[in-house]
């Protein structure tokens, strides 16, 4: 089914989408919020620029955006896949707990903030270009991959991983990030790390037809120093 969103506000568009089972194509997306909220099956193809909270609480559907996306893509997403042929705004994958997000270009501030995981449920974000400040802040689980394609310097900004206490970030960069917060430790990627990200890199290449030749020397891994970063902060009273 094909929907022209040109003259629809978010409630009208989302109502129209809720009535459709299976795959849909939306043309002329123009900032409508909450597209694909909690969708659990089928595929949504979006042409244009969807608004904030795209695919919030997503529960299994696939969303592909031909254009850029705005803030809070995949907020608290549980399952499924979001593919963005462009850049994403702030708070990408906020508190995400399952599924995969692929961004061809860059992500704004606070991507992957408070991501979590439990047993087999492990969310993944792949950012093709660079990530903004506060990447993976309070991260409690999951995997963030930053490829730095087209970046001339470090594809990370400030305060990466503040309060991180779970999960992993793997960044393609020659230079070790400086000034990382004390909760984060950085090391060269191992063969096992590379193995872990290969399936996602293969997907990325296929989705965006970009060829990658990953070598473990090109990657750094950021991990939390402890599961309980703040235990020593308190005294009982």
């Amino acid at each position: 089914m094909k929907i022209d969103a040109a003259n629809l506000d978010f409630e009208q568009l989302n109502k129209a989408l809720k009535n459709v089972q299976g795959d849909s194509i939306v043309d002329n997306c123009l900032g409508q919020r909450f597209i694909g909220v909690k969708r659990n099956s089928g595929k949504l193809t979006l042409n244009g620029t969807p608004g904030n909270a795209l695919g919030a609480y997503l529960d299994g559907a696939v969303i592909e955006v031909f254009g850029n996306a705005q803030d809070a893509v995949g907020d608290t997403m549980n399952d499924g896949k979001i593919i963005i042929h462009g850049s994403a705004g702030d708070a990408l994958g906020l508190a995400m707990r399952g599924g995969e997000i692929y961004v061809k270009e860059n992500a704004g501030y606070r991507a992957g903030i408070h991501m979590k995981e439990y047993q087999e449920k492990k969310p993944v974000i792949v950012i093709g270009g660079s990530a903004g400040s506060f990447l993976g802040e309070y991260m409690a689980g999951g995997l963030i991959i930053v490829l730095g394609l087209g970046a001339t310097k470090l594809p990370l900004k400030n305060f990466t991983g503040t309060g991180m206490h779970g999960g992993k970030m793997i960044v393609r960069t020659k230079q070790l990030p400086e000034g990382l917060p004390p909760q984060v430790s950085a090391a060269k990627a191992s063969m096992a790390d590379l193995q872990e990200i290969l399936p996602y890199l293969t997907q990325f290449s296929a989705l965006f037809t970009i060829s990658l030749t990953p070598k473990k020397e090109d990657f750094f891994v950021l991990k939390p120093n402890a599961k309980n970063p703040y235990t020593k902060l308190y005294t009982e009273n």
């Binding site: 408070h114 309070y138 206490h165 779970g166 599961k227």
Partner: peptide, 21 residues
């Protein structure tokens, strides 16, 4: 509790001061 919160056992459950969005 870990299962209900969806975080691994033994990990601190940290709710940040603000909602980051």
């Amino acid at each position: 509790i870990a299962r209900t919160r969806m975080i691994p056992e033994g990990t601190d459950a940290i709710s940040p001061a603000p909602h980051h969005d």
